[in-house]
Design a protein around this nucleic acid. Structure first.
Length: 616
RNA sequence: GGCGCUAUCGUCUAACGGUUAGGACGGAGCCCUCUCAAGGCUUAAAUACGGGUUCGAUUCCCGUUAGCGCUACCA
């Protein structure tokens, strides 16, 4: 049963409730907020309070997203004509069987000009349902994260439903740690999902589907013991198609051996007598076809009775009425098997969109085993990537908005995302041994950091400051943040960039660092001594410091830069640091004077060498 | 081995038969400047190869090469 509640507001948004499926109804009835997909809703605003009429139709094909559709004959609903905008309608529709069905509402209203005729517009609801289906066999890697994001964007773009399905049929390899890691990664992305399932809780469904396929004679038992050596099958000139003798087993013998407790896997009986091409259309890769002569009799059920990935995945996709499968290209050739399964069960296959793979600089698909934690999203999180920047970066791998935009907000991405923008060739994530992160990802992150309000950044920085081993008051952090905001690319850089703000004692540095450009230690000493003299009477503000220090420079007969550099090093402990006056203001008079005093001591300790030190 | 997919600067990509092949990151240089950043400007850098089709191919077709993926009782 589908309940469609159309609430007509000025903007003609449509609120729909689709508790269409038992599971959904039982778990979490959901209100989906959908924007009109088609046309400009010229009924909006100015027609507030006008009279309109509303009709609802089924639409056969789901080309809705592409802007094309044909209206099926059946009209599902028609409102009484004079109906106020703002009125609320509730009516029931029958169960919608196919994921390819959509609902189109046609609105009619009097012409703006008033008199003759009516203007009408269509708005549609395609029950777009996508899923992300990770298997908990390792941490969430960035390729999976991208798949999740693309699915999510597609769902949000078209008012669809995002489903998280844990594909955990392989009991042997699943671990709780992986599952936790996946949720950790997903939560960090912060995008969320609408429905959640676990395959291991739906085994009954999978078995039923296996039985149904068996019933039709499209599967058979294979009693061949599990093969330890996998090389065996592929050694021959052609592909392995099936184990000899098993396809031809009579029903009686098969039943007898099964009843006797002999272990078997259930295999799909790929048609062999009449060779034909299995076809499907991929939204990214176009028309695909493969001969049945090249498809092996793949397993549906393991010898322990559990479903394989192929079976479980298809059964659930059909049952959850998944309309679009957006997944990695490593599944492209598997899809022929899936089409076969859908065919066998009479279910209409969803639309497919395969994504080019994310590969390492060596060209191989990113894998946890080969490439280690650099491919885990938690690595990015821990290094101080902002999840929005990360998502932004990862979206640009294998997809393009087709214009020159690089930095895109979440909403930008939603608005721009389309399957057409996905390209076909694999994308290299450009990490190296020295640097685990793609330079472009780092740059994008710096852009996000730069654009962030200082208050928010300070808050985000705090944990990283702690992690670097410093203690920081929120107030001080807020003062420091603007000084380092455009100097850090990752949040963790704060440890390097702002250490001297939080340290009581500066890390040791060489006295030579104090020497200004075209100067010597003696000049450094003169500068510092003058600073020590002047600073007690200086107001510690940008203006006060600048005025007094510049004046000091000219009275010493040196350039401003030569004045500032020794002070900077004395105060920060290194040559490269944020602008001097703001920095000193934040550090405060006492700390600055103390550090200048220490620098003077340092020079005196170097006295013997002072004469020897040559000019630059 | 079999089958499938792919091929534009180092990397991410744009150009859906006609462009001096565009942008971004990274590199180099200059400017700005109290250092570092940030910002601005400039610059080097690509259509894998060979055949067609066409008045004209980055673009369409074929082949070669290379890479990737699948070829499990993994997903």
């Amino acid at each position: 049963m589908v309940l469609l509640a159309l609430c007509l507001y000025g903007s003609l948004y449509v609120l729909v409730q689709f508790p269409a499926h038992p599971e959904v109804r039982a778990n979490r009835p959901k209100l989906v907020f959908a924007k009109p997909l088609l046309g400009q809703s010229h009924l909006a605003g100015s027609h507030q309070g006008k009279l309109i009429r509303l009709e609802v139709f089924f639409v056969e094909r789901h080309e809705l997203c592409d802007g094309q559709f044909t209206i099926a004959d059946q009209q599902l609903f028609a409102s009484p004509y004079p109906m106020e905008i703002g009125a609320e309608l509730v009516f029931e529709l029958g169960y919608i069987h196919s994921p390819h069905m959509a609902i189109i509402a046609r609105f009619e209203a009097p012409r703006r000009s008033g008199t003759a005729g009516r203007s009408s517009c269509y708005t549609g609801l395609f029950m777009l349902r996508v899923r992300f289906a990770p298997s908990p066999t390792g941490f969430l890697h960035i390729g999976s994260a991208r798949t999740f994001i693309f699915n999510w964007l597609y769902a949000r773009r078209h008012g669809g439903t995002m489903i998280l399905r844990i594909d955990d049929t392989d009991i042997e390899r699943n671990t709780q740690a992986s599952l936790d890691s996946i949720f950790e990664g997903l939560n960090w992305l912060g995008l969320g999902w609408d429905e959640q399932y676990r395959q291991s809780e739906r085994l009954e469904l999978h078995r039923k589907m296996a039985a149904a396929i068996s019933q039709k004679g499209l599967a058979y038992r294979d009693f061949t013991p599990a093969q330890g050596d996998e090389g065996e099958k592929s050694r021959s000139g052609t592909a392995w198609l099936c184990n000899p003798g098993m396809r031809e087993l009579s029903r009686e013998e098969s039943d007898r051996r099964a009843a006797a407790g002999e272990l078997f896997v259930l295999r799909y009986r790929v048609p062999r007598d009449a060779v034909r091409d299995i076809r499907f259309s991929d939204a990214v890769y176009g028309e695909q076809s493969k001969s049945t002569a090249d498809i092996e009799d793949f397993a549906l059920l393991r010898s322990d009775g559990t479903p394989t990935y192929h079976l479980a995945s298809c059964a659930d996709d059909a049952d959850l009425r998944i309309s679009h499968i957006i997944r990695g290209q490593d599944h492209l050739t598997n899809t022929f098997k899936h089409v076969l399964i859908f065919e066998a069960t009479g279910a209409e296959p969803p639309r497919f969109a395969h994504l080019p793979l994310l590969v390492a600089p060596d060209g191989t698909k990113l894998s946890k085993r080969r490439h280690g934690p650099v491919v885990s999203v938690t690595t990015y999180r821990d290094a101080g990537f902002l999840s929005q920047a990360f998502a932004n970066f990862i979206c640009l791998l294998g997809w393009s908005p087709k214009d020159d935009r690089e930095k895109m907000s979440r909403q930008d991405l939603i608005d721009a995302f389309s399957l057409e923008g996905i390209n076909k060739s694999n994308a290299v994530v450009n990490f190296t041994e020295n640097d685990p992160f793609d330079p472009k990802a780092v740059w994008l992150n710096s852009q996000y950091i730069y654009a962030m309000p200082a208050e928010e950044l300070a808050e985000r920085l705090l944990p990283f400051v702690c992690m670097a081993g410093f203690r920081a008051e929120p107030g001080k952090m807020l003062a420091v943040t603007p000084l380092i905001q455009e100097r850090i690319k990752l949040l963790r850089d704060v440890g390097q960039a702002a250490d001297f703000f939080f340290l009581d004692e500066l890390p040791p540095y060489d006295a030579g660092e104090l020497i200004p450009q075209k100067g010597d230690l003696a000049m450094a000493l003169r500068v510092l001594e003058r600073a020590r003299e002047v600073l007690p009477g200086t107001e510690f503000s940008h203006q006060g410091l600048e005025e007094n220090l510049r004046a000091s420079a000219s009275s010493l007969g040196i350039k401003a830069g030569q004045m500032f550099q020794p002070i900077r090093v004395a105060v920060c402990g290194r040559k490269n640091a944020p602008p001097l006056f703001e920095t000193m203001a934040v550090l405060g008079r006492d700390t600055c004077l103390k550090r200048i005093e220490q620098a003077i001591q340092k020079i005196h300790e170097n006295e013997p060498r002072m004469n020897a030190s040559t000019r630059e």
